[in-house]
Amino acid sequence: MRRPRWWAELSLIGVVYAAYTGGRLLVRGDESTAVGHGLAILRAEEALGIDAEHPLNRLFTDVPALGIPADFAYASLHYLVTPAILVWLFRRRPAHYRAARTWLMVSTLLGLVGFTLLPTCPPRLLDAAYGFTDTMAHFSAYGWWGGEASAPRGLGGMTNQYAAMPSLHVGWALWCGVMLWRYGRTPLTKAVGAAYPLVTAVVVMGTANHYLLDAVAGVAVMGLGLLLASVLLRALDGRGRTRPEDEAAEAPPVVGGGCETSPGEQRIPGQRSVPTAADHPTAAR
């Protein structure tokens, strides 16, 4: 298989990411709808006894040694680790790059569909009566972000505050983890691959940026994206493959076995022919 061209890949990734970012801004949704969806998720988790966000958020708020690194991780790792693994695959595992890239892109676009259909208020933006603390606002003096998600100070208006369902922080981390586990060659690389998505899930809940069900939805989106990417790649490969009957039709005709001419055929100048009895009368006696 021909190795992808780096400039074509960079352009493709840039276009998809621009569409994703622009789409997030265009589908912000109204506040009341987003808050309603957030509260519905929270009530469902409380009914099931799986509202892990509350204890994690209290822990991260009360222990700055956990909360501050978690804020840095939430604000930066998905921008650093995901592209780094794409580059690593492109350079070191080119045979697997195309499938991995397609899986990531399809899943990202599916996440945008989720933001459109289900704008969701994250825990940190709910009324204080629900018991959540926005750790990124609480510890904003330690980082470049302000009180509006992970955006740089003063640029919070450039983000969609209600793009919580599904959590692509968790989805992208899962993709990174699978790549490291499958294609890493050392036990340390595989251990990092297993730990990274789990740590990310804890971080997004502890910082009150996502509910547990957001994380579950992020995993589900990646699963669906993997299936759709496989179908898409098979369809594209099928269109580019020549059918056997077409190959036979296009093959040039073989004249005289490719190197011989039959009696009576006009010989190609300089072509040797197989001697016959007519050519050597003595051999026929």
Score class of each variant (00 low, 15 high):
P4L: 01
W6F: 14
E9A: 07
L12E: 02
Y17S: 07
Y20H: 12
G22D: 05
D30Y: 09
T33G: 03
H37W: 12
R43W: 07
G49N: 08
G49L: 08
I50C: 09
P55Y: 05
P55N: 08
L56A: 01
N57L: 06
L59N: 00
L66A: 02
L66N: 08
I68R: 10
P69L: 08
D71T: 13
F72D: 03
A73H: 07
Y79I: 00
V81N: 02
P83I: 09
L86S: 01
L86H: 14
L86D: 01
V87D: 06
L89D: 01
R91K: 14
R93C: 05
H96V: 11
A99R: 15
L104C: 06
L104G: 01
M105C: 08
S107K: 10
L109T: 02
L112K: 10
V113F: 12
F115Q: 04
L118N: 01
L118D: 00
P119I: 05
T120C: 11
C121Q: 15
P122K: 09
A128W: 14
Y130V: 00
Y130T: 00
M136F: 09
A137T: 03
Y142V: 06
Y142D: 09
E148N: 08
A149R: 14
A149C: 03
P152I: 00
R153T: 04
L155F: 11
G157Y: 14
T159S: 12
N160L: 04
Y162F: 15
P166K: 05
P166F: 06
L168D: 00
A173H: 08
V178C: 04
M179V: 15
M179P: 00
L180G: 00
R185Q: 13
K190G: 00
A194L: 15
A194D: 06
A194M: 14
A195Y: 05
A195S: 09
Y196M: 05
L198A: 15
V199S: 08
A201F: 05
V203L: 10
G206P: 04
N209C: 08
H210N: 14
Y211D: 03
Y211G: 01
A217C: 12
L224N: 11
G225R: 05
G225K: 06
L226W: 09
L228V: 02
S230G: 15
L232G: 03
R234Q: 13
D237K: 12
G240H: 13
T242L: 11
E247R: 15
A249G: 07
E250D: 05
A251L: 11
V255M: 10
G256H: 07
T261D: 03
T261G: 04
P263Q: 10
I268F: 15
G270P: 03
Q271F: 08
S273M: 11
P275Y: 04
A283Y: 06
R285P: 01
